[in-house]
Design a protein around this nucleic acid. Structure first.
Lengths: 341, 341
DNA sequence: AATCGTTACGAAAACGGTTGAGATTTTAGT
DNA sequence: ACTAAAATCTCAACCGTTTTCGTAACGATT
């Protein structure tokens, strides 16, 4: 009923616990026949080491923590999947927590993970996280931490990101190439780095191609769970303010889909009257009509990469060596679909 | 640098480790002033109990395992969110694994979780899981297990489900009420219980309302990552075989969206020529055009409920009492949208 | 016969906390 | 003053493994 322990095996075989332990771990100082006897019995009793004990002894938990702003989200669930799949291969388990875009929750959850003695942490910061002392705490405990997607310049650690600026530049340039002369931008919140970078990419692309940058064409949205509505609202405002706009680059697919809906409701034709480019390549963007041109943000690979880097750092730290932080930028690509057709 | 231990506190205060431990846990046999001294120091040193040690001693890990077929999935990510949020409130952490709809992986992952000594397991079975001896193993270890969504009749345990049959009945009846006379059904794979139940609900609804049940109107799809394509393919076949069909009830929203796409491509008007009802109420169903009438499957609440039940069972088992398995059915509701407008 | 080197195993400390059973001191009751 | 009863604190075992160090046995070497 209760799981078998080394002790029970030792008693049955009339040997000491240490011998059994060593036999199972193939220590050279155990006789071959003893090893065989131990292993046979262990197998037949279905012995599995108690990880709680192993963890305590070895001072590692073989688990990593993952904190993301929102679980129900195409991009993040892809990241989760990437992390989980890599972790499993390396014998690690993943504990998931959701910060709900709240800095405060994020703090608590980091505490939680530290108390749980996770071997490492992967995090995408909440939107309202600007001060990061809670993150510093992680390094004090000698636990590696990798950031992805929403990162902070303030913290010195490995980061897995895309080149938001470049991607946004490409998206905007695509609109220009398609003949757009007056291009609006629905940007994300003001603090997150990636939202800033996308904005910068948009602006640079305009200026590089001899188009005027007009701040009144930039609309802000929080990109939270109201994204879709925000897209509609911004689109509505846009149509009221600027009837001459012929292209929009939008910070997130979901917002873009909201905008598309509003355009359709008001009889504005896409792509004939306005062309639209989104960001992230949510699955639904490929199945709506008109399908949405967007930037593919490789969530799955970001997850994989983030874990791989974390794993390297865990191993490095175990060997007592110094960490070398990497800034890994993954390639994005423009997916051309009907909204810029 | 390294986390503070009880021992260190004890030494500083010239008392024994046990006194410190008890003081922090508010044992009645420790003096009030001692308690205060201990607590003050513990706070100032930022003491946090080492959960690895606590876990070993108390023989509980304060973590639960969750196995789902697919992480990147609107329904499942909602479930995850529900579970994680409830677990966190009760001081539990959640380890997530993905079975990828593979029975074999499922086995391994259950092993993994058992070795990790999780306090409980929540699982939605893989499509191809029909024999369940690996699940029996969980109960042998006295670890509670709760199934949700894709459950098995073969296993005696608590289950959180929706009344698939009733929901499917309602969906089909809705089509009938809207005037459909010849209603097709795109069903899920053959083994999963919920796919069978939905099929039964569909059939019963037809018969109850004097419509003929025609097996050739039933199409099968695996509902895996090719769902969207499957929807298109089935729709294509349907249009080839049965031009007279005026309504379809489809096992999953994503398949339905694939079907809608094919209908649109072929110039079949929805809802005028064919009315469509999906299942699950994926977020995207509300933002596509025409928006999809569907059955709302409360993923978040299912997650919450599953964890709550698991929690009850964990507590029950701790007290040494016998478990009472519950079969919890959550309410679904029909969301009427444009595809049956 | 004393020394040495192997080989094969065991004892015991450790990891960091929990907890019941004493031990010691203080307080109260007669 | 003497004892019973509280009140407070410490001991020590324990959870299941890992790992260092010690040592017994035995044949080989000098």
């Amino acid at each position: 009923m209760k799981p078998v322990t080394l002790k029970q095996i030792a008693e049955r075989l009339n040997m000491s616990v240490s011998t059994v332990s060593k036999a199972l771990k193939d220590y050279p100082d155990i006789g071959v026949d003893t090893k065989k006897r131990v292993r046979d019995l262990a197998r037949s009793l279905n012995y599995k080491p108690n990880s709680l004990a192993v963890n305590l002894r070895t001072n590692e938990s073989k688990t990593v923590g993952l904190i993301i702003p929102e679980i129900v989200h195409h991009f993040f669930s892809n990241v989760i999947k990437g992390i989980v799949s890599r972790a499993e291969k390396k014998g690690y388990l993943v504990i998931i927590l959701q910060s709900d875009e709240s800095n405060e929750l994020e703090r608590k959850q980091i505490e939680l993970l530290l108390n749980q003695r996770v071997d490492g942490i992967i995090i995408s910061l909440a939107n309202d996280t600007d001060q990061c002392d809670h993150i510093e705490g992680v390094f004090k405990q000698q636990i590696p931490l990798v950031m992805f997607d929403k990162v902070s310049k303030r913290i010195d650690c490995s980061k897995v990101v895309i080149d938001d600026r470049k991607a946004a530049y490409e998206a905007t340039k695509h609109l220009i190439d398609k003949g757009c002369k007056r291009i609006a931008h629905f940007r994300g919140a003001l603090t997150p780095l990636n939202s800033i970078d996308r904005f910068m990419g948009y602006r640079t692309a305009l200026l590089d191609h001899g188009l005027e940058f007009d701040p009144s064409l930039v609309y802000i949205c929080a990109c939270d769970d109201r994204s879709f509505e925000e897209g509609k609202e911004n689109a509505k405002k846009l149509l009221e303010d600027h009837r001459d706009v012929d292209g929009v680059f939008i910070n997130t697919d979901l917002v873009a889909i909201g905008a598309l809906t509003e355009f359709k409701n008001q009889g504005v034709r896409v792509p004939e009257d306005i062309k639209v480019v989104g960001f992230s390549n949510w699955f639904m963007s490929s199945v709506i009509s008109p399908s949405l041109t967007t930037i593919d943000q490789p969530g799955f690979r970001m997850g994989e990469t983030a874990f791989d880097q974390l794993f390297i750092e865990i191993e490095t730290l175990k060997k007592g060596k110094d960490l070398i932080f990497k800034n890994i930028e993954l390639e994005t690509k423009l997916i051309e679909r009907e909204t810029t057709g």
